[in-house]
Computed example of a mutant assay.
Amino acid sequence: MGIGVWELLLLFLIVLLLFGTKRLRNIGSDLGSAIKSFRNAMSEGDDEKPGRTIDGEAVHENKDKP
């Protein structure tokens, strides 16, 4: 037992009547830009890690010392 096509269509129509097309378009645009910025932040965070993790401890490599 789950949500069928008719239930989803009815739900969409109710949301459309409550918010209107312009507001739904703005909400969708804001949500898309938030997801895009979140993905960019996650990929930038991976590149900025200076050290590596060994057995749960952070090891910072110092390139000046041998």
Score class of each variant (00 low, 15 high):
Ser37His: 06
Thr21His: 14
Lys63Pro: 12
Glu7Ser: 13
Asp64Arg: 09
Gly2Trp: 03
Asp30Ala: 09
Asn26Arg: 11
Met42Cys: 10
Glu57His: 04
Phe12Trp: 12
Met42Leu: 14
Arg25Asp: 10
Leu8Glu: 15
Glu7Val: 03
Lys63Gly: 01
Gly4Leu: 06
Ile14Leu: 08
Gly4Asp: 15
Ile35His: 03
Glu44Tyr: 08
Asp64Cys: 05
Ser29Ala: 14
Leu13His: 01
Lys22Asn: 07
Lys22Gln: 07
Leu8Met: 15
Gly28Asp: 06
Leu8Ile: 08
Glu61His: 08
Gly2Val: 04
Trp6Glu: 13
Ser37Thr: 15
Lys65Pro: 00
Asn62Asp: 13
Arg39Lys: 12
Ile27Met: 14
Gly28Glu: 06
Met1Ser: 15
Leu16Gly: 04
Thr21Ile: 08
Gly51Ala: 03
Lys63Trp: 13
Phe19Ser: 00
Lys49Ile: 07
Pro50Phe: 02
Lys63Leu: 10
Thr53Asn: 09
Arg52Gly: 05
His60Asn: 03
Thr53His: 08
Ile3Asp: 04
Ser43Tyr: 13
Gly2Pro: 00
Leu18Ile: 13
Glu48Ser: 04
Lys65Arg: 08
Ser29Val: 11
Ser33Val: 14
Leu10Val: 06
Ala34His: 12
Ile3Gly: 06
Arg39Leu: 05
Glu44Trp: 08
Leu17Pro: 00
Ala34Ser: 15
Asp30His: 07
Leu10Cys: 02
Asp47Leu: 08
Ser37Phe: 11
Ser37Tyr: 13
Phe19Cys: 01
Met42His: 13
Leu9Ser: 11
Val5Leu: 09
Glu61Pro: 05
Ile35Glu: 09
Asp46Val: 10
Trp6Met: 09
Lys63Asp: 08
Val15Gly: 09
Arg25Tyr: 07
Lys36Ile: 06
Ala58Ile: 04
Gly4His: 08
Met1Gly: 14
Arg52Glu: 10
Ala41Gln: 14
Arg23Thr: 12
Lys65Asp: 10
Leu8Arg: 15
Ile3Arg: 13
Ser37Lys: 04
Lys63Tyr: 06
Lys65Gly: 02
Asp64Ile: 04
Leu13Thr: 04
Leu9Trp: 10
Arg25Gln: 14
Thr21Phe: 15
Glu7Tyr: 05
Ser33Asp: 15
Phe38Asp: 10
Leu18Arg: 07
Leu16Ala: 01
Leu31Asn: 10
Asn26Met: 03
Gly4Val: 08
Gly45Ser: 11
Ile14Lys: 05
Phe38Ile: 12
Thr53Tyr: 12
Gly45Glu: 08
Gly56Val: 02
Leu18Asn: 01
Arg23Phe: 06
Ile27Ser: 04
Asp47Pro: 00
Glu44Gly: 05
Asn40Cys: 07
Ser29Gly: 07
Phe19Thr: 03
Pro50Met: 05
Gly32Ser: 14
Ala34Lys: 13
Asp55Asn: 09
Gly32Asn: 15
Thr21Ala: 13
Asn62Thr: 03
Thr53Glu: 14
Thr53Ile: 12
Arg23Lys: 13
Glu44Asp: 12
Ala34Cys: 12
Gly2Ile: 03
Asn62His: 03
Met42Phe: 11
Lys49Arg: 05
Lys65Val: 10
Leu24Ala: 11
Ile35Ser: 07
Leu10Tyr: 02
Gly2Glu: 10
